[in-house]
């Protein structure tokens, strides 16, 4: 399939879906509108809502807040994951002691932590960051841990025979291996950073995309809810494209830079 055909077909799916939505929410069939606009709104209203957000500039503040929270969650979560991942991988005893607790915390649905974080860190940016961190941390942690553990013995022995000391092994062998594992899960961890931010905002905030959706829902503004969802999707796709670019750049040495998550 050529690129053009593919793109045409992809656009066609959107057009058909939107048309059906518009049709069933506005045109009565057998004297009855199948999708009541009160619950389903319609594409035109949703679109005009989005245009209004962008034309008045209201949306930028919310986007910026969500982006900022996501970035902070990603950076802090990754840093923590890398540190602890390295520590555990190099100290099997520490890893063995903490193993059940790591599993326990990881098994916990992170949403239930949101109220606690709201209590501890308030309704501002940091409670969302904390939620995102708990999500990002484990992804990065597990991947870095694996990356350090999975260095082939031959490569390690080769490093030693070439005269590397522990510090140089760290820098030239463990670190690149761990990073490659971390980068291979970059899409997942970045995605979770956004999830943490948005869910946190939804559960209690004064700004952000999650807050916007929650506000619209609170006043039964279905068009607003859908508009928020579309903006959020576009936002996530944009971030994902940036991640893909970064990934291609960083994993050139890999046979195929595909995500493994």
């Amino acid at each position: 399939m050529s690129r053009v055909t593919l793109l045409c077909l992809q656009v066609l799916v959107a057009v058909v879906a939107l048309s059906l939505w518009q049709f069933f929410t506005t045109v009565p069939l057998f004297g009855k509108i199948l999708l009541p606009p009160f619950f389903f709104s319609n594409p035109v209203d949703v679109f005009s809502q989005i245009v209004k957000w962008f034309s008045t500039g209201v949306i930028w503040k919310h986007l910026a807040i969500t982006l900022w929270e996501s970035i902070l969650a990603f950076v802090i979560g990754s840093a923590g994951g890398i540190l602890v991942g390295f520590w555990f991988a190099r100290q099997p005893r520490v890893a063995a002691v903490f193993d059940p607790y790591v599993k326990m915390v990881n098994a916990l649905p992170r949403v239930v932590l949101a109220p606690i974080f709201a209590l501890w860190f308030g309704l501002g940016v940091w409670s969302k960051v904390a939620l995102g961190v708990t999500l990002v941390f484990f992804i990065v942690f597990f991947n870095v841990y694996q990356g350090v553990k999975e260095v082939p013995t031959t490569v390690l022995d080769n490093g030693r025979m070439l005269g590397m000391n522990e510090r140089q092994l760290m820098r030239h062998v463990y670190w690149p291996s761990a990073l490659s594992w971390m980068f291979s899960s970059l899409h997942t961890s970045v995605g979770f950073a956004v999830v943490g931010a948005v869910v946190g905002e939804y559960l209690g905030a004064a700004a952000g995309l999650g807050y916007l959706i929650q506000q619209a829902e609170g006043v039964f503004d279905v068009a607003g809810v859908f508009a928020g969802m579309f903006v959020l999707s576009a936002f996530v796709i944009l971030i994902d494209m940036v991640v893909t670019l970064v990934e291609k750049r960083l994993l050139v040495w890999r046979p195929t830079a595909v995500a493994r998550d």
Partner: peptide, 8 residues
């Protein structure tokens, strides 16, 4: 076995 550093 292959012992080169794949990231270099």
């Amino acid at each position: 076995a292959d012992a080169l550093f794949p990231w270099k």
